[in-house]
Each structure stands twice: as C-alpha cells, then as structure tokens.
C-alpha cells in the first residue's frame, strides 16, 4: 500500500521538481559539481596526487608555484598541491561525522522536546541554553583542551556546539506540528504518540533538517579548521587545510603567499560549496523562504 505506484510517482515528481529548480538555478548546479569534485578528492585523493604529501625534499624548499609543483612547495619541500588534495578527506570526514552525530542527537532531542513538551522540553532546552551561553568557538576550544588534543575530540566538540541549533530547529518544527490537524487525525486513527512522532512529524521535518545539515557542514569545516589553526586537534605533519594555513602564516610576511593561499582557497571553496547547496536545497524544500 505504502509502496503503491503513487509513491514512485511522487519520488519522480520530487526529482523532476529538483531538476527544474537546479536547471533554473545554475549556481546550485555548479555547487553540486563542486561537491562531486570534493568527494572525488576525498575518496581518490591520496592515490592521484603527483607527490607523497608527507615526503619532504630538502632540495626544493619554498619553491613558488611552477609546472612541476602547481601550488609550490613548503619549508620542508613538500608539494603543496598534493597536500591540499590529500587533506580533503580529513576535513570532509571531520565535518561529516560531526554533522551526522549532531543530526542524530540534536534532531531527535529537538523532536522529542517539541512533540512531547513538558520535562523533555525543559531538559533539552536547558542543555541547549547552557551550550548557547558560551561563544561557540570558545566552548569548542575548551572542550578540545579538556578532552584531549585529538581529531575525535574535534568531531565531538563540533557536534556539541551545533547541538542547540539542531535541537531548536527540530523543536520549533515539531511543536508547530504538534497541534496540526493531521497529527490530531493520526491520534483519532489510533496511532500511538511515538508512532505519530515517527510517521507524521519526522518525515515532515526531514527536509528542513537536510537544509540545516548542508548549511552546518560548511560551519563544521570552518570550525575544525579554526581549531587546528590555533594548534588543536590535527597535528603536523598530517595534511589538513587549517593547519596548512597556520604553517604558511609565518611565511606571508616574507612573501611566500602560496603556502597559505591554496589551502585557504580549498577551505573556502568547500565551505562555499556546502552553503550554496544549502541555499539551493532550501529553495527546493521551502520556496517561500528564498532570500
């Protein structure tokens, strides 16, 4: 029944709507192409780069970009291009894992808070308020400093500081629908509260949460890079965009611009890509909120 031809038709309709929106919006199409490139680098990066990202070459230190070294070389003679490409995997992985973590915990907590109200709402609200009482990046610094300087803790810290955002969006969307006619109708049809939360609330909130995910992906990348820029989480010589910019920062004043520029650009491009996709998804999900 639920897999009737209608559902298939609906999926097709959604896809064709998505295609319509994308075809009318070349920027979003461009963003998806960029995403493809990023994913390609993340998956195949380490195998396709021309040089070993960790191998130093004392004969070729601080070389400006050339045909041999597209993005130049750093103080240890490592190929910046290879390092930038190889870093994609780590940067994306940190963002993906932290967003997945916060989506699961924050989203569900928010739905529970908005739909059931009462104590659940108060507890989730109190946790979110406490986290929000800190400037978020500062809290992330404190968490990583306390838990220990590892990549896993960067993921955890990034998830924690995003918790209020997810919990609040999910809570608002769930509580708006709590008294909606279709939820009351589901009660009259004998659905249990849990079942209503899962079949009537969750699927209707999902698209909005997807937009949220895409927008926070960019923020998560920025946050992780910022932490490693000040020396938290990722340790050298591991290639990571934030730390590479930090390593190149000292050379900027002496004119070796390529060390910081290329990883910084890669970082910017990745964040830009997720933000564009987020905006594009929002257009598909909620045309009224176009800005």
């Amino acid at each position: 029944m639920s897999r009737s031809p209608g559902t298939g038709a609906a999926i097709l309709a959604t896809l064709s709507h998505a295609r319509y929106v994308i075809s009318g919006n070349p920027v979003t199409a461009f963003a998806f192409m960029l995403l493809g490139l990023l994913l390609f680098c993340a998956v195949f990066g380490p195998w396709i780069v021309p040089f070993d990202p960790l191998a130093s070459d004392t004969a070729a230190t601080l070389k400006a970009p050339s045909l041999r070294h597209w993005f130049g070389t750093d103080a240890l003679g490592r190929d910046v291009f290879s390092r930038v490409v190889a870093a994609t995997r780590l940067d994306l992985a940190i963002a993906v894992f932290s967003v997945a973590l916060v989506f699961a915990f924050g989203g569900l907590a928010g739905i529970a808070a908005g739909f059931f109200g009462g104590w659940t709402d108060r507890i989730v609200g109190r946790i979110a308020d406490t986290i929000m009482a800190f400037p978020l990046f500062v809290l992330a610094m404190g968490i990583v400093a306390a838990l220990g300087n590892t990549v896993t803790n960067i993921v955890i810290a990034t998830a924690i500081i995003n918790f209020p955002l997810y919990a609040r969006v999910a809570r608002t969307e769930a509580s708006v629908r709590r008294e909606a006619g279709f939820v009351m109708a589901a009660r009259l049809s004998g659905n249990s509260e849990l079942r209503i939360a899962l079949t009537s609330i969750l699927p209707n909130i999902l698209p909005i949460m997807m937009v949220q995910m895409s927008l926070t992906m960019g923020y998560a990348i920025l946050n992780a890079a910022g932490l490693s820029f000040i020396g938290l989480g990722v340790r050298p010589p591991m290639p990571e965009w934030g730390i590479m910019v930090a390593e190149g920062a000292g050379s900027i004043i002496s004119g070796e611009w390529w060390l910081a520029l290329f990883p910084g650009l890669a970082l910017m491009l990745a964040v830009f890509c997720f933000n564009l996709i987020g905006d594009g998804l929002r257009d598909i999900v909620d045309p009224q909120r176009r800005t």
């Binding site: 559902t7 006619g181 109708a185 079949t199 009537s200």
Partner: peptide, 16 residues
C-alpha cells in the same frame, strides 16, 4: 492542515 503532506490520499484514508 488535517492531511499529512507526506501521505497520499489513499494512505490518509487507510490510516485508521
């Protein structure tokens, strides 16, 4: 407002 946007008409009628 009284129809779940994710349910087809048939699914909505079938729910009870």
């Amino acid at each position: 407002d009284s129809l779940n946007p994710r349910y087809s008409a048939a699914r909505a009628i079938a729910d009870p």
